[in-house]
Amino acid sequence: MNDFSSAFTAALSLLASGDADLAEIIALSLQVSLGAVFIATCIGMPLGAATALYKFPGRRTVVVILNALMGLPPVVVGLIVYLLLSRMGPFGVLGLLFTPTAMVFAQVILIVPIIAALSRQIVEDLWREYDEQLRSLGAGPLRCMATLLWDGRFSLLTAVLAGFGRASAEVGAVMIVGGNIDHVTRVMTTSIALEVSKGNLAMALGLGMVLIVLSLAINGSAFLLKESGLRKHA
């Protein structure tokens, strides 16, 4: 308990000091996670909406696979991306291994199924309500998809937040493909793991606190945005 309180105090003073290394780690973490969430949203939402709207052979299988992939083990994804990007891999020539781009790539693979599966459920529920009205107005499949994604935007925010939660807390995949290189690919989660192994609990706890505060701030902002949107547009 004493260790915890002293680590906590040290963490607070570290945060208060505005440590440049800490700021760099926080900035890279946000860059990687938000970048991955943005790309995964661009892929996952249309994918989920298309799965909800279009009837095609094997649709149920796709739904089951999407749902199952929500639980992808990060270390396995990290390993696969590592193999793809390593010098011997098919994309080795790009030289992306141990770069933030590789970390974003791995996180996108992890998040796309989460955003797609949750989006599918939200859009499918909305489609039950909108189906006849949109068809009556003459909306084609693509326009229906765009309309449902727009009208479901407040609920879909939850899917994006779930993706962000996964990305910001993830350590296994980014550790493998990023390598936790100081000033290059070190993010909060990999840094916490490293600091703990070094016994630097103050730094680890400081980073942990920042991670939680950031997560709370982003989720809180999204919640307020959703509430205000729903109040305005019911």
Partner: peptide
């Protein structure tokens, strides 16, 4: 065109709802 017993209002303004039908 058709008007339903329980019409679905799109999550946008009154004017935008009419505009949507016209844009289609």
């Amino acid at each position: 065109a058709m008007v339903f017993q329980r019409p679905v209002m799109l999550r946008r303004t009154v004017a935008a709802n009419i505009d949507y039908a016209l844009s289609l």
